[in-house]
């Protein structure tokens, strides 16, 4: 396969995410400019200019009409996806590390970092298509986090949400009351990323303890564990196969001390059931910070510490292969 190389960012990538249909690819990096790309051609469609710090993540509404970004400039911003116009800005006292729309797009969730003397918190704001009813004040604030939450996952049923944190904790919260239902610590180091399976019955977490784990959403039990030699920065589950994609590599501070090959900068594909690795894709010059399967499972995108986004569409051999 010949991947598309997207060089729009000048700093390490923080998140890559497809919209629901998979025709748009949103990328955020530490360079203040979230970018949207056409997924089929790799054409840059636009950038969202206005943040004044690293952008940690993004989420979009069901119809992709609005984009939400959270940044280290302490703000969460709401954008018109088509024009790049900023619609609203919520300001906090510490960087926004994770951001998400609730299913149905009625709530905006922003998780702030435990930094600058502030506690890690999760803010809930009302959101509606009509901008007049978008509230600048939070309707609910969740405390009680020991460390910064790195990702917020709303369950598709909207009844609860899952947060993963730098303290290796996976937490389940009641969406209605904001009570903490459960805390599970099965990773040994901080969790860098969490993504749903296509149905929401499972999710996968990627941790600095060199493992990725697939969890059962309801019981918060670990079903599968995938172990590699380097910290895992991101993991994604294929919507069509029993495949898990892991992206990671040596920490950025140690990259210069090792060669390209030793750094393990490859995207690694594992069989979900057998927990065995079956394929690798090389290409990045640094650790892979974020990965995502396309919603149709025919390809994946990876964003690296090297500032490159590589968009891959699998060869026919990937689909023809017998994995069992």
């Amino acid at each position: 396969m010949r991947p598309l190389l997207l060089k729009g960012h000048e700093r390490p990538l923080t998140q890559v995410k497809f919209n629901r249909e998979g025709d748009l690819l949103f990328t955020t990096a530490k360079d203040k400019r979230p970018t949207v790309w056409r997924a089929d051609t790799g054409e840059r469609l636009g950038t969202y200019n206005g943040h004044n710090g690293a952008v940690w993540g993004a989420d979009m509404t069901y119809d992709s009409s609005r984009l939400l970004t959270g940044s280290a400039d302490n703000s969460a911003m709401l954008w018109d996806t088509a024009s790049g116009k900023r619609l609203h800005q919520w300001t906090h006292k510490s960087p926004v590390r994770a951001i998400a729309f609730s299913p149905g797009d009625s709530i905006v969730t922003a998780a702030t970092a435990k930094l600058m003397g502030q506690q890690a918190q999760i803010y809930f704001y009302r959101h509606a298509a009509d901008m007049a009813s978008v509230d600048p004040e939070p309707v609910m604030v969740l405390g009680g986090l020991e460390a910064t939450a790195t990702r917020v996952l709303w369950h598709p049923t909207s009844t609860f949400l899952i947060t993963v944190g730098e303290d290796a904790a996976v937490k389940k919260w009641d969406a209605e009351t904001g009570t903490l239902l459960e805390t599970v610590r099965l990773h040994k180091k901080g969790i860098n990323d969490a993504q749903w399976s296509s149905t929401g019955e499972q999710f996968v977490t990627a941790s600095s303890d060199c493992t990725a784990k697939v969890w059962d959403t309801r019981s918060l039990e670990v079903l599968k564990t995938f172990t590699v030699e380097a910290p895992v920065n991101s993991a994604s589950m294929s919507p069509t196969f029993d495949h898990v994609l892991l992206g990671g590599g040596q920490e950025a501070s140690q990259v210069t001390t090792t060669g390209n090959r030793e750094g393990k900068f490859e995207a690694r594909l594992f069989h979900t059931v057998y927990e065995s690795e079956f394929g690798r894709v090389r290409g990045h010059f640094g650790p892979i910070n974020t990965v995502a399967f396309t919603p149709d499972g025919k390809g994946y995108v990876s964003g690296g510490e090297d500032g490159f986004v590589r968009l891959h569409y699998f060869d026919q051999s990937y689909f023809d292969r017998d994995y069992d």
């Binding site: 991947p3 190389l5 997207l6 060089k7």
Partner: peptide, 13 residues
Amino acid sequence: ISAVSLEEINMEW
């Protein structure tokens, strides 16, 4: 900004 990789990258099985 956007380019198709000149190098053919194959999945290493």
